[in-house]
């Protein structure tokens, strides 16, 4: 699975969990912070779904627990793109 396919999957996952139109989910869509398009519950749902996706489709472990997880400046959850990039990077 290449980077664009992972990006597309992340976009779909965010749209589904956040009950948002897919067309409104761009790479720059923020997932945390004051401009976040999803609430914390939906973010957890997104991460749970991506954890499963990473194992089943990428063959890697996506560990989303970290001290900086919800940090607005360092978190991999800043945007749809940062999350997709992190997942792609896990493939090595």
């Amino acid at each position: 699975m290449d980077a664009s396919e992972i990006m597309e999957h992340v976009r779909r996952t965010v749209a589904e969990a956040g009950e948002l139109p897919l067309a409104g989910i761009a790479p720059a869509t923020p997932l945390i912070g004051p401009r976040a398009v999803v609430k914390s519950r939906a973010l957890v749902e997104i991460l749970l779904a991506l954890e499963e996706f990473a194992e089943e489709h990428l063959g890697v472990t996506f560990d989303w627990t970290s001290d900086s997880a919800m940090s607005q400046s360092r978190s991999i959850f800043r945007t749809v793109e940062s999350l997709a990039t992190h997942l792609h990077g896990l493939k090595g």
Binding site: V44, E45, L48, E51, E52, T65
Partner: peptide
């Protein structure tokens, strides 16, 4: 925390 993730799903 671990069980919570499983039950949330």
């Amino acid at each position: 925390a671990e069980m919570g993730r499983l039950l949330a799903r």
